[in-house]
């Protein structure tokens, strides 16, 4: 008796397949596409970053305030690093979101972990963006020997 109340729930035999209208949007599809698209761009950005900062010249030993200041005096590296910051953070946050969804079984655990993840990511992306845009390679009052050469035009 109970089954007879919902006859439309099961399609008639051999009726053509009709995709049910999605009710939750296509977010996961877009996220899947984004991971692949951003991954390809990040491969270039991150390998370039590692090569210039670790392989050229004295490598990691050459990195100091003057090195960063010299790089960010050029719009090229500002755009490079800004793009890398945004793509890497969204790619990484989305990846960790997937991992949390896979392993945190309780709804409350998943909610807390993802809230922390989004909060940390938002803080870091906003902070990083502000730093790139408001950075002054020649801060007044700083010791001259710590500053990049562009602070001393002849």
């Amino acid at each position: 008796m109970a089954q007879a109340q919902t006859p439309s729930a099961i399609a008639a035999p051999r009726s053509p397949y009709a995709r049910r209208k999605t009710t939750r949007g296509n977010f996961e599809l877009y996220s899947w596409v984004f991971m692949r698209a951003s991954g390809v761009v990040l491969l270039v950005l991150v390998f370039g970053h590692l090569f210039v900062n670790l392989m050229v010249g004295e490598g990691v030993h050459a990195i100091d305030f003057a090195f960063v200041g010299g790089k960010w005096s050029s719009p090229f590296w500002q755009v490079w690093d800004l793009l890398m910051l945004w793509l890497a953070m969204f790619h990484g946050t989305n990846g960790v979101r997937t991992v949390v969804n896979d392993y945190a079984q309780r709804d409350s655990t998943r909610g807390v972990l993802k809230s922390l993840l989004y909060l940390a990511s938002a803080i870091v992306v906003i902070l990083g963006t502000l730093v790139i845009f408001t950075f002054n390679p020649c801060p007044p009052g700083a010791p001259a020997e710590l500053l990049p050469s562009i602070c001393f035009p002849n």
Partner: peptide, 12 residues
């Protein structure tokens, strides 16, 4: 990203 943000604090 946090350590790089220190360039905004001071060279030292």
């Amino acid at each position: 990203i946090l350590d790089t943000a220190l360039v905004r604090v001071s060279p030292e």
